[in-house]
Deep mutational scan, measured.
Amino acid sequence: MATGGRRGAAAAPLLVAVAALLLGAAGHLYPGEVCPGMDIRNNLTRLHELENCSVIEGHLQILLMFKTRPEDFRDLSFPKLIMITDYLLLFRVYGLESLKDLFPNLTVIRGSRLFFNYALVIFEMVHLKELGLYNLMNITRGSVRIEKNNELCYLATIDWSRILDSVEDNYIVLNKDDNEECGDICPGTAKGKTNCPATVINGQFVERCWTHSHCQKVCPTICKSHGCTAEGLCCHSECLGNCSQPDDPTKCVACRNFYLDGRCVETCPPPYYHFQDWRCVNFSFCQDLHHKCKNSRRQGCHQYVIHNNKCIPECPSGYTMNSSNLLCTPCLGPCPKVCHLLEGEKTIDSVTSAQELRGCTVINGSLIINIRGGNNLAAELEANLGLIEEISGYLKIRRSYALVSLSFFRKLRLIRGETLEIGNYSFYALDNQNLRQLWDWSKHNLTITQGKLFFHYNPKLCLSEIHKMEEVSGTKGRQERNDIALKTNGDQASCENELLKFSYIRTSFDKI
């Protein structure tokens, strides 16, 4: 039985969820670079991206490699990797027998973001014989899940209580170790020597080791999670996991709180800001991140802002960003909400898709409305799209047979046209069989910064309504002859009103 693990408890099935942008060198404390989270699957090609990484700022997932063999891993080693800020997950990587050479110096898994409450997941690794993470000293947050690894031993010899604050939620089941077939031998045991430290858990006094050649490092209890030197002297209180010299914040392997210019500090002093819960960055760093993602459509890219001495992905609820200094300031009234469309555009074809934009005031991208039916549609669209004030790209209304009016965009005031449909149009209306009105132009103002209007096959939309939009939106004169079809717009509506004058002759039985 794995020490510190839980057996036999019912657990939810383990679901495996399925960018080499360097964020800056980590400095003297770390020998390499800070790398983003990685999802490495199918083959070993991307694994080489770990070569210079000291910190993975995010998670590391290595999974679904069915053609790899043990010899493929023999020359692979990433000794610079010290810390993973989120979680480490391995799933069905064939041929991998140990992690001792792959990650010989991995010391800390912070667990800032977890995989279903777990910071370390080893699942269905069919050839893994031992973990071998002999320098792993601290899992700051989260638990361990090690399950269905039929060859995995050296679990009962690990004292997880020396690595985690609590072992109650560890789930370590259905491994070879369960069948008591392992016969784990710690260093020196074969020669009758006791080389590794022994600890007591559940009444068992057991030597602690990761492999037959690597003991588990056990520091004096007084050192807590700070770690200790090879001689057993406690590291500085700002260290986490390990250090090369005692009581020196510049000799830590990793930091308990924050890293700044080669030393570990309790908090980031001005003019620095907390970033990702582990390091200090200056304003320029946060500003660069903001600008890199301002026009990016890459998933996970955030326009970072500053709030409460932190550089964070977005302002919290009730705050909006001051564009001059990136500071989050309290909103006066309802907060603006910028919604970034991942692929640059979004099609609204149902109430469900409209709900995804609920509360958005600025759309960074283009909207395509293609709704053919739905219950209580006008009210639903207004509830979900009615706060949109600005669209950076274009607005396209296409084959939306259920629409009679666009009044559900009740606050839309600006279409920038930074991206144009077919390279020309910022407003595009095609084949809307029941569209009769755009907006009530006596109450609604709309500016279209650039781009043209396109109207074709809107049989109940009168040309007068379209011409009014040209005047109000500032697009009059931009359109070419064929942009607004004269014969297919309003051709099934009563669009022309003329005053009919009647004269009559009164007659009676005795007068003409």
Results as ranks from 00 to 15, higher is better:
29 L>P: 04
29 L>F: 02
31 P>F: 12
31 P>S: 15
31 P>R: 02
34 V>F: 15
36 P>D: 01
37 G>N: 13
38 M>P: 01
39 D>S: 10
41 R>S: 15
41 R>W: 10
42 N>T: 11
48 H>S: 12
48 H>W: 06
49 E>G: 06
50 L>M: 09
51 E>I: 15
52 N>L: 06
56 I>S: 01
57 E>S: 07
58 G>P: 00
58 G>L: 00
59 H>S: 09
60 L>T: 01
62 I>P: 00
63 L>F: 03
63 L>S: 13
64 L>Q: 02
65 M>F: 09
66 F>T: 04
67 K>M: 08
67 K>C: 07
68 T>A: 12
70 P>Q: 13
70 P>C: 04
72 D>K: 13
72 D>V: 07
75 D>I: 11
75 D>N: 15
77 S>Q: 12
78 F>I: 11
78 F>R: 02
81 L>D: 00
82 I>C: 06
85 T>A: 04
86 D>I: 02
87 Y>L: 00
87 Y>E: 00
88 L>S: 01
88 L>N: 01
89 L>I: 12
90 L>P: 00
90 L>R: 00
94 Y>A: 08
96 L>K: 01
97 E>M: 04
100 K>F: 11
100 K>N: 15
101 D>N: 07
104 P>D: 00
105 N>L: 02
107 T>D: 02
108 V>L: 06
108 V>F: 02
109 I>V: 11
109 I>Y: 00
109 I>T: 00
109 I>L: 08
110 R>G: 09
111 G>S: 02
115 F>Q: 05
117 N>W: 06
117 N>Q: 09
119 A>T: 04
121 V>G: 04
122 I>A: 05
126 V>T: 09
127 H>A: 12
128 L>P: 01
129 K>Y: 08
130 E>K: 13
130 E>I: 08
131 L>K: 00
135 N>T: 10
136 L>P: 00
137 M>D: 02
138 N>P: 01
139 I>K: 01
139 I>Y: 01
140 T>V: 10
142 G>R: 01
145 R>N: 12
145 R>D: 03
145 R>L: 10
148 K>V: 05
148 K>G: 05
150 N>Q: 12
151 E>A: 13
152 L>M: 08
152 L>V: 03
153 C>L: 02
154 Y>T: 08
154 Y>K: 14
155 L>M: 08
157 T>I: 11
158 I>S: 07
158 I>P: 05
160 W>E: 01
161 S>Y: 13
162 R>L: 09
162 R>T: 06
162 R>S: 07
162 R>I: 08
166 S>L: 09
166 S>M: 15
168 E>D: 05
169 D>I: 07
169 D>T: 13
169 D>Q: 14
169 D>F: 08
170 N>I: 08
171 Y>V: 15
171 Y>W: 12
172 I>E: 05
174 L>W: 05
174 L>R: 11
175 N>G: 12
176 K>S: 07
177 D>N: 14
178 D>A: 15
179 N>D: 04
181 E>A: 11
182 C>Y: 02
182 C>R: 12
182 C>M: 15
186 C>I: 06
186 C>V: 03
187 P>Q: 05
188 G>F: 06
189 T>P: 10
190 A>H: 12
190 A>E: 07
192 G>I: 01
193 K>C: 12
194 T>D: 06
194 T>C: 02
195 N>D: 08
196 C>G: 09
197 P>G: 03
198 A>C: 13
198 A>R: 08
198 A>H: 14
198 A>S: 06
199 T>Q: 10
199 T>C: 10
199 T>F: 10
202 N>L: 06
202 N>S: 11
203 G>S: 09
204 Q>R: 07
204 Q>S: 11
205 F>L: 12
205 F>K: 10
205 F>W: 15
209 C>L: 02
210 W>L: 06
214 H>L: 06
214 H>S: 12
214 H>T: 11
215 C>M: 15
216 Q>H: 10
216 Q>K: 03
216 Q>S: 09
217 K>C: 02
217 K>V: 12
217 K>F: 14
217 K>Y: 06
218 V>P: 07
218 V>N: 07
220 P>N: 09
220 P>Q: 11
220 P>Y: 08
224 K>E: 13
224 K>V: 07
225 S>N: 13
226 H>S: 04
227 G>V: 12
229 T>W: 05
230 A>H: 11
230 A>E: 12
230 A>T: 06
231 E>S: 11
231 E>K: 06
233 L>P: 04
233 L>D: 03
234 C>W: 01
234 C>G: 02
236 H>G: 05
237 S>C: 09
237 S>F: 13
238 E>K: 04
240 L>D: 08
241 G>F: 04
242 N>K: 05
243 C>M: 00
246 P>R: 06
247 D>W: 05
248 D>L: 05
248 D>E: 05
248 D>C: 02
250 T>C: 07
250 T>Y: 06
250 T>R: 08
252 C>M: 03
255 C>Y: 01
255 C>K: 01
256 R>A: 10
256 R>Q: 13
257 N>S: 09
258 F>A: 10
258 F>N: 02
258 F>Q: 13
258 F>W: 08
259 Y>R: 03
260 L>V: 11
261 D>W: 03
262 G>W: 02
263 R>G: 12
263 R>T: 11
264 C>T: 00
264 C>V: 00
264 C>L: 00
267 T>R: 04
268 C>T: 00
270 P>G: 09
273 Y>D: 00
273 Y>E: 02
275 F>P: 01
276 Q>D: 15
276 Q>V: 10
276 Q>F: 12
277 D>S: 12
277 D>C: 02
280 C>V: 00
281 V>K: 03
282 N>S: 15
282 N>T: 07
283 F>P: 08
283 F>V: 11
284 S>W: 09
284 S>R: 13
285 F>Y: 03
286 C>N: 01
289 L>E: 09
289 L>H: 15
290 H>P: 04
290 H>G: 08
290 H>V: 11
292 K>W: 08
294 K>A: 11
294 K>N: 03
295 N>E: 06
297 R>L: 06
297 R>S: 07
298 R>M: 08
298 R>T: 14
299 Q>L: 05
299 Q>A: 10
300 G>D: 11
301 C>R: 08
305 V>M: 12
305 V>L: 08
305 V>H: 05
306 I>L: 04
306 I>F: 14
307 H>L: 05
307 H>P: 01
308 N>G: 07
310 K>L: 11
310 K>V: 05
311 C>F: 04
313 P>N: 03
315 C>F: 03
317 S>K: 03
322 N>R: 12
322 N>T: 04
323 S>I: 05
324 S>R: 12
327 L>W: 04
328 C>M: 02
332 L>E: 15
335 C>Q: 04
336 P>C: 03
